[in-house]
């Protein structure tokens, strides 16, 4: 799978979540193990890891500290990144919770584009394929050069623009078809049962894990006697 840009096609929504969750390290695979030589990024556009109380600059400092080596390899320079953000009037001092929905989507997608990973995971593409994300798409294309992509999105225009291979999985995760993207789509159209989720891939990405920060004010001054 390394070096390929694969669209995973399946009717099982849970399987999609679990696949991306297991690759991202959020859940352990039910069986087997994931072997990949390189850095696996967080799901592209995912906003799960940053607390809404953080400022933009805090969030960026945090991710640079954690993924600094991926920034060194990146095609996107910091000045360009800030320039991209300023187009949506996003500045370093803003707090994430104060951003509009559109600004949030843009900021989290821009963060994913900023770093260069060896494996990109793309579970959702509604915003990525929208008009607002158009300035970011060329940079994602650049970052994806010679890199691996796994997408569970059912968005056909995304698949045709970003993916080269297709992998059709059955309801229980069994491999039904593997090959070029066009053949895989054709095979899936003919053999998979029609699903309600086929073209609407904008469900909130979830792995069943609660990764929200909890308020820890109760740990401090109270109850010490």
């Amino acid at each position: 799978m390394e070096g390929k840009k694969t669209a995973v096609i399946t009717n099982n929504l849970f399987l999609k979540y679990q696949l991306v969750g297991a690759l991202a390290g959020h859940v352990a695979p039910i069986s087997g193990q994931i072997l990949f030589d390189g850095v696996i990024g967080w799901p592209v556009g995912g906003e799960g890891g940053l607390d809404s109380k953080l400022r933009i600059s805090h969030a960026l400092d945090f991710l640079i500290a954690v993924y600094g080596d991926c920034l060194e390899k990146s095609f996107v320079r910091m000045d360009l990144f800030w320039d991209l953000l300023s187009r949506m009037e996003i500045h370093s001092g803003l707090i994430i919770r104060d951003l509009s929905l559109l600004q949030k989507d843009y900021f989290f997608l821009a963060l994913s584009v900023l770093f260069s990973f060896d494996l990109y995971l793309i579970p959702r593409t509604k915003f990525l394929m929208s008009k607002s994300a158009k300035p970011l798409r060329p940079f994602l294309h650049n970052q994806l050069e010679a890199k691996t992509l796994v997408s569970t999105s059912a968005n056909k225009s995304f698949q045709r623009e970003f993916c080269t291979d297709g992998l059709v999985l059955g309801v229980f995760g069994e491999l039904l078809f593997s090959g070029g993207l066009d053949e895989a789509i054709r095979w899936a159209d003919q053999n998979l049962e029609a699903s309600n989720s086929a073209d609407s891939d904008d469900e909130q990405f979830g792995t069943g894990l609660n990764l929200l920060n909890l308020d820890s004010s109760g740990d401090g001054a109270d109850d010490f006697i």
Binding site: V66, L214, S216
Partner: peptide, 23 residues
Amino acid sequence: FRMVAIKALSGLKLRAPLYYPRI
């Protein structure tokens, strides 16, 4: 000792960073 222990007893309250595979 108390702060570290009591906080730990309340569970992992800072969970969001776990979203990033390296953490």
